[in-house]
Amino acid sequence: MYAQMVTSEATQDDPDKLAAFQARIDAGDKIEPKDWMPEGYRKTLIRQIGQHAHSEIVGQLPEGNWITRAPTLERKAILLAKVQDEAGHGLYLYGAAETLGVSRDELTEMLLDGRMKYSSIFNYPTLTWADMGAVGWLVDGAAIMNQVPLQRTSYGPYSRAMIRICKEESFHQRQGYHIMMKMAQGTPAQKKMAQDALNRFWYPSLMMFGPSDTDSVHSAQSMKWKIKMNTNDELRQKFVDQTVPQAQYLGLSVPDETLRWNDEKGGYDFAEPDWSEFYDVIKGNGPCNTERLAARNKAWDDGAWVREGLMAHAEKKRAARMAAE
């Protein structure tokens, strides 16, 4: 899940308007950019969509780390296409956020100076090729859990972006699982590598859904507005139930000795991740926080002359055209 712990904004609007707005949402209407909306709705959405977009962009880095080391030409092309899709998804989401009155550059600057966050998962390193499998299978798998229901979110541009993203992402998780399959059926060294990747990515993947929010007022408000569709625990449970049989099929073991099928609830009982680690990562102390932000800052700073150069040229052309008319 690419937006974690998004706090909702309190809203102080005319109660009649608020009630009418809520009635529209309850009726399944889509809210469009020029419609009246509560200030809290707008701000919460900017925060959530922005965080989601940032996650896509920072999320390019851990997988981008292996593009130049992919083992075959086909794997290289597939991985590159996937990481490119992430850039595209970031772009669609920034576009959705921009309809709410904030520019992409403003959002980018908030990411770069730490005012806005991105998903905790991208602060973990990718150490082996098996990590490309684990990231596709687990990280994209977890993200999809959240993104599929978000296609029905109340905000029109966000919903449309999610529809496009879900359509494009359908191959992402499958390519990850395919890598894992090849390795699990490969040499003993490859199988060990695959198990090692699962060991390292299992708990960080569970953290992607965020801590339990059954009692969170922020989540309750967001769910009422239909910008959050499920509780974190619901999605986490669904993810575990879906993923455990997939791991069994690979012949890999989930690194959780307490993992048991629970007939009564019709799902697995599983161990919670170490939430203190999660808060450390969120605070900036994850294994790769520094590198990730430094890489984004460098790309932005190094690219400034390019953006300005092309803009200056466009303005010269425009001026010349106007002079000719």
């Binding site: 490119q84 772009l91 669609y92 921009e98």
Partner: peptide, 24 residues
């Protein structure tokens, strides 16, 4: 309408649209 993007001018916008929105 498929979405939006940023570009310095119309020609670049067309190329960017080709690269961003016709990948499939």
């Amino acid at each position: 309408h498929v979405g939006s993007l940023h570009a310095p001018d119309a020609e670049h916008a067309l190329r960017n649209a080709r690269d961003v929105y016709t990948r499939r």
